[in-house]
Design a protein around this nucleic acid. Structure first.
Lengths: 117, 117
DNA sequence: TGATCTCATCGTTGATCGACGATAAACGAT
DNA sequence: ATCGTTTATCGTCGATCAACGATGAGATCA
């Protein structure tokens, strides 16, 4: 497996997560379940336009949904997207962390026998 | 909670993960458990200097360790770092995905079909 | 109608990323 | 001592990011 194409999407979503401001936005959305953009702006030390950009990034990554509702916008988490991401990231991190729990001999024990395929 | 300072480290690590080439490198390290940089280069459509740069990013994020061993280098996963990352990301994604499983009423209450992308 | 509020988008600026070739450093082998 | 191999680093270039202010589009309210 290794999935060449899927990695693009996975990387896109991880990149969307990989910013302190966006993490803060997501946490705010999770806590309040409210969607007002203005409230998020007031909770962060960033300009309104900057927050709007971050929201756009999150929306394009498919992590949140945005709905124009009258003069204001309603943002909220796409729970299913995060569940799907968890199903992808969970096993990946498990595998990278050793998973089964074999000793694994770290990296270089010293006398590196042959190797090579 | 949410700790403003921790988000910096979390974002750093997520950003290190958020690149297809680096995902491929990590998978290669997880599969072969071998550390030769040259082997990784031969397995990717990238120049040696580019791979070296990616390895540097991963190392600076604390996700892998690199040991100079004679003329060659020995890279391998920092299993503990990935375990720690999993302990951080797992609950986060669980929370963002709804966790408890309450209905949560989605976002928009009104009958506005889609609007917006 | 006009004023106001909310938010998205545009345009700009400086910083960082991603890729590459070229080069240098460390070591083993000849 | 001199090669050849392996890897890190440097310098460059184009693309993208992150932040901001300014502007514009909708919708509500006076």
């Amino acid at each position: 497996m290794s999935s060449t194409g899927t990695d693009e999407l996975l990387a896109l979503r991880l990149r969307a997560l990989a910013h302190p401001a966006r993490l803060a936005i997501l946490r705010a959305l999770a806590e309040t379940e409210r969607c007002q953009c203005g409230e998020i702006v007031r909770g962060l030390p960033l300009a309104q336009s900057t927050v709007s950009q971050h929201l756009k990034v999150l929306k394009e990554a498919g992590l949140i949904t945005g709905t124009i509702e009258g003069p204001r916008s309603c943002y909220c988490l796409d729970r299913e997207a995060f569940a799907s991401l968890a199903r992808q990231v969970g096993p990946l991190l498990a595998r990278l962390s050793g998973e089964g729990g074999e000793p694994r001999a770290a990296c270089s024990p010293g006398p590196q026998e042959d190797a090579l395929v």
